[in-house]
Design a protein around this nucleic acid. Structure first.
Lengths: 145, 145
DNA sequence: CCTTGACCTTACCACGATAGGAAGGCCCAT
DNA sequence: ATGGGCCTTCCTATCGTGGTAAGGTCAAGG
């Protein structure tokens, strides 16, 4: 089948399929006489694998490793598990960072009257975080990264 | 002061200061006779504001709006609050997505023996999510985005 | 005065993953 | 055989950041 059909069948855009081929994530597709890329059901199967891994937030490099293990009959599931858990750790770290941002902002927003006056603890914090956000106790520290 | 000092004082790299100027986030800096950018304490103050907004995850566009409000003496704190809460909503959405990925992967990893055998429910799920991960009931559905 | 080293300038290129478009060729159905 | 839809390659952009190279400037010290 042509690339368009493979794209539809796998959920990976034709654009990305070409990109994955170009960057060596997938082997070069077979070609028709006219130069069209030709894909088998097997290929679409692999593309679906890739898409699901992307959906789980794996980077292309991570997927490269996953594909390697997938194709390796002598793989050890421990290696897959290690890969997966390392990725989970990354995700959790990102989540923590975002969570910190969100709670900080929420706290500040809670202190903001949200009316037609200009004074606003959110701007005050951005301007000078050493000054606590008017009333209501604790200083909201920005992550000092 | 020169850009290097302003960078040190604000926590924004010289590179990014030039970038912010180029993209119009900040006004063009004054120049010395030799063409060096010159920054005042005021400027550094603004750069610190920008850096803190970045630390809270605001995009450059978001910061542009924040700066506009910051400089607007007739602003309404409601506008700032709206901006902040909209950003919080975005953050929470991202968090949810990452959380889904993490829990899915963790569940799969928990089903993986993690030994020297090749069979692995993580790979099985990536290969074909309609097949539940051996034993232990529910199908782990990948986010169908 | 001249050198040295630290700083500044502009102008590029790169990442990672994805999308868009242009220009041209191919294929199939009418 | 012509039109529309698919394909091809190549270029561009995104977003925020980092790097590098080639050159100008400045201050300190011999």
């Amino acid at each position: 089948m042509n690339i368009g059909e493979a794209a539809k069948g796998s959920g990976v855009s034709a654009k990305m399929i070409r990109y994955y081929e170009e960057t060596g994530l997938i082997p070069p597709a077979a070609r028709s006489e006219a130069g069209y890329r030709i894909y088998s059901d097997q290929d679409v199967h692999m593309l679906r694998f890739i898409r699901r891994a992307r959906d789980l937030g794996f980077s292309v490099e991570g997927i490269r490793e996953l594909l390697g293990l997938w194709h390796d009959r002598d793989r050890q599931s421990a290696d897959v598990k290690r890969l997966a858990l390392a990725h989970v750790a990354e995700l959790r770290q990102k989540i923590r960072k975002l969570e910190d941002m969100a709670t900080t902002l929420e706290t500040l927003a809670a202190c903001c009257h949200g009316n037609d006056r200009p004074d606003c603890p959110i701007l005050s914090e951005l301007e000078d975080p050493t000054a606590p956000p008017t009333r209501t106790g604790p200083v909201h520290q920005l992550k000092g990264a």
